[in-house]
Amino acid sequence: GKMTGIVKWFNADKGFGFITPDDGSKDVFVHFSAIQNDGYKSSDEGQKVSFTIESGAKGPAAGNVTSL
């Protein structure tokens, strides 16, 4: 299901970062391709987002990331 969290950091040059879930669980990796914004796929530190957890090649990753 959908979770909410805060972007801990995001490196636009490398195209990835981490989200800290609101439920206190482990930080989740986020790749720019998962960000659902139109246009520039980046996110700012401290941005509140909703997301799903997908199982990626390197473990859990955020999917369907949407700014709230």
Results as ranks from 00 to 15, higher is better:
Asp22Ser: 08
Thr66Cys: 08
Gly39Ile: 11
Pro21Gln: 02
Phe32Lys: 13
Thr52Pro: 03
Ser55Cys: 14
Gln36Tyr: 10
Val49Asp: 01
Tyr40Asp: 09
Gly17Ser: 00
Gly1Leu: 11
Gly5Met: 04
Ser33Leu: 08
Lys2Met: 11
Gln47Lys: 10
Ala57Cys: 12
Ser67Glu: 09
Asp27Gln: 05
Ile35Cys: 13
Ser55His: 14
Asp38Val: 11
Trp9Ala: 01
Asp44Ala: 15
Ile6Leu: 07
Gly56Pro: 03
Ser67Trp: 14
Lys26Glu: 12
Ile53Arg: 05
Lys26His: 09
Ser43Cys: 15
Phe29Pro: 00
Val49Thr: 00
Lys8Thr: 05
Phe29His: 01
Phe32Met: 12
Asp23Tyr: 05
Gly24Ser: 04
Lys2Asp: 04
Ser50Glu: 10
Gly63Leu: 13
Ala57Tyr: 12
Ile19Arg: 00
Ile19Met: 01
Lys26Ala: 14
Gly59Leu: 04
Ala57Ser: 11
Asp23His: 06
Ile19Glu: 00
Ala34Gln: 12
Ser67Thr: 12
Val7Trp: 08
Met3Pro: 03
Lys58Ile: 08
Asp13Met: 12
Ile6Lys: 11
Asp23Phe: 06
Gly59Ser: 05
Glu45Val: 15
Lys48Val: 08
Lys26Pro: 14
Val28Phe: 04
Ala57Asn: 10
Asp44Arg: 15
Phe29Thr: 01
Ala62Pro: 03
Gly24Ala: 04
Thr20Asn: 03
Lys14Trp: 12
Lys2His: 10
Phe18Ile: 05
Val30Lys: 00
Phe18Pro: 00
Ala34Ile: 04
Ser42Thr: 14
Ser50Arg: 07
Phe51Asn: 01
Ser42Trp: 15
Ala34Phe: 05
Val30Tyr: 15
Phe10Cys: 06
Asp38Cys: 14
Lys26Gln: 12
Val30Ala: 01
Trp9His: 01
Ser25Met: 04
Met3Val: 09
Trp9Gln: 02
Pro60Met: 10
Gly46Cys: 14
Met3Trp: 07
Ser25Ile: 03
Ser55Ala: 13
Ser42Leu: 14
His31Thr: 03
Ile35Tyr: 13
Pro60Cys: 08
Ile19Val: 03
Asp38Asn: 12
Glu54Phe: 11
Leu68Trp: 04
Phe10His: 01
Lys26Thr: 09
Gly63Trp: 12
Ser43Trp: 15
Glu54Ile: 15
Asn64Thr: 06
Ile35Ala: 03
Ile6Tyr: 10
Thr4Ala: 04
Glu54Leu: 13
Gly39Met: 11
Asn11Ile: 02
Gly24Cys: 08
Asp44Trp: 15
Ile53Asp: 02
Gly56Thr: 15
Ile35Thr: 05
Gly46Leu: 10
Gly59Met: 04
Thr4Val: 08
Gly15Gln: 03
Phe10Val: 04
Asp27Ala: 06
Gly15Phe: 03
Pro60Asp: 08
Asp22Met: 07
Ser50Gln: 08
Phe32Gly: 08
Gly46Lys: 09
Ser43His: 13
Gly63Thr: 14
Gly39Ala: 11
Gly46Trp: 11
Asp23Thr: 05
Phe18Thr: 01
Asp27Pro: 08
Ser43Val: 15
Ser25Glu: 05
Gly59Arg: 07
Glu45Gln: 14
Leu68Ser: 07
Ile53Thr: 04
Thr4Leu: 08
Lys48Ala: 10
Thr66Pro: 02
Lys41Asp: 11
Tyr40Asn: 09
Thr66Gln: 12
Ile35Leu: 13
Phe18Asp: 01
Lys58Leu: 10
Ile35Pro: 02
Ser25Phe: 04
Asn37His: 12
Ser50Lys: 06
Val28Asp: 00
Ser25Leu: 04
His31Glu: 05
Asp44Met: 15
Ala62Gly: 02
Phe18Gly: 01
Ala62Thr: 01
Gly56His: 11
Phe18Ala: 01
Ser43Lys: 10
Val30Gly: 01
Val30Phe: 15
Tyr40Thr: 10
Ser67Met: 15
Gln36Gly: 08
Val28Pro: 00
Lys26Val: 10
Phe10Gly: 02
Ala61Asp: 02
Lys48Met: 08
Thr52Cys: 09
Asn11Arg: 06
Phe32His: 11
Lys14Ala: 09
Phe18His: 00
Lys26Met: 10
Val49His: 00
Asp38Thr: 11
His31Ser: 06
Thr52Phe: 08
Thr20Pro: 01
Gly15Tyr: 03
Phe16Val: 03
Lys14Glu: 05
Val49Asn: 02
Phe32Val: 13
Asn64Pro: 02
Gly15Asn: 03
Phe10Thr: 01
Pro21His: 02
Lys14Arg: 10
Gly56Asp: 08
Ser43Gly: 11
Lys14Thr: 07
Tyr40Arg: 10
Ser67Tyr: 15
Leu68Gln: 07
Phe16Ile: 06
Phe16Met: 02
Asp38Gln: 11
Ile6Ala: 05
Phe32Gln: 11
Asp13Lys: 14
Asp44Thr: 15
Lys41Tyr: 12
Thr52Ala: 04
Val7Cys: 12
Phe18Tyr: 08
Gly56Asn: 10
Val28Gly: 00
Gln47His: 12
Thr4Arg: 06
Val28Cys: 05
Pro60Thr: 10
Val65Ile: 06
Asp27Asn: 06
Gln36Met: 14
Thr20Cys: 12
Ser33Lys: 06
Tyr40Glu: 08
Gly15Thr: 06
Ala57Arg: 13
His31Asp: 06
Gln36Cys: 14
Ala12Cys: 14
Gly24Leu: 04
Asn37Pro: 10
Gly39Tyr: 11
Val7Lys: 00
Val7Ile: 15
Asp38Ala: 13
Asp44Ser: 15
Gly46Met: 09
Ile53Lys: 05
Glu54Gln: 11
Ser33Pro: 06
Gln47Trp: 14
Ser42Val: 13
Pro60Gly: 04
Ile19Trp: 02
Ser67Arg: 14
Lys58Glu: 07
Ser50Cys: 12
Phe32Trp: 15
Pro60Asn: 08
Thr66Ala: 08
Val7Gly: 01
Lys14His: 07
Asp23Leu: 04
Gly24Ile: 01
Gly39Pro: 10
Lys14Ser: 07
Ala62Val: 03
Ser55Trp: 15
Leu68Ile: 13
Asn11Tyr: 04
Thr20Met: 10
Gly15Asp: 01
Lys2Tyr: 12
Trp9Leu: 00
Ser25Pro: 03
Asn11His: 06
Thr4Gln: 05
Ala62Tyr: 02
Glu54Asp: 08
Ile53Cys: 08
Thr4Ile: 08
Thr66Phe: 05
Ala61Ile: 15
Lys41Met: 12
Asp22Cys: 14
Lys58Ser: 09
Thr4His: 07
Lys41Gln: 10
Lys58His: 12
Val65Asn: 02
Lys26Asn: 10
Asn11Pro: 03
Asp13His: 12
Ser25Val: 03
Ala34Pro: 05
Gly39Leu: 12
Ser55Glu: 13
Asn37Cys: 15
Lys8Glu: 02
Thr4Tyr: 06
Lys41Phe: 15
Thr20Ile: 12
Lys2Ile: 12
Gly1Asp: 10
Ser33Ile: 06
Tyr40Ala: 10
Phe51Pro: 00
Asp38Glu: 12
Glu54Tyr: 13
His31Val: 04
Ser43Tyr: 15
Phe10Pro: 03
Ile35Asn: 03
Ile53Gln: 03
Val7Asp: 03
Gly5Trp: 03
Ala61Gln: 15
Asp27Met: 05
Ala34Leu: 02
Gly46Asn: 09
Asn37Gly: 14
Gly5Ala: 02
Pro21Tyr: 06
Lys58Trp: 15
Ala62Trp: 02
Ala34Lys: 08
Gly1Arg: 13
Thr4Lys: 06
Lys2Thr: 11
Lys58Tyr: 14
Ser42Arg: 11
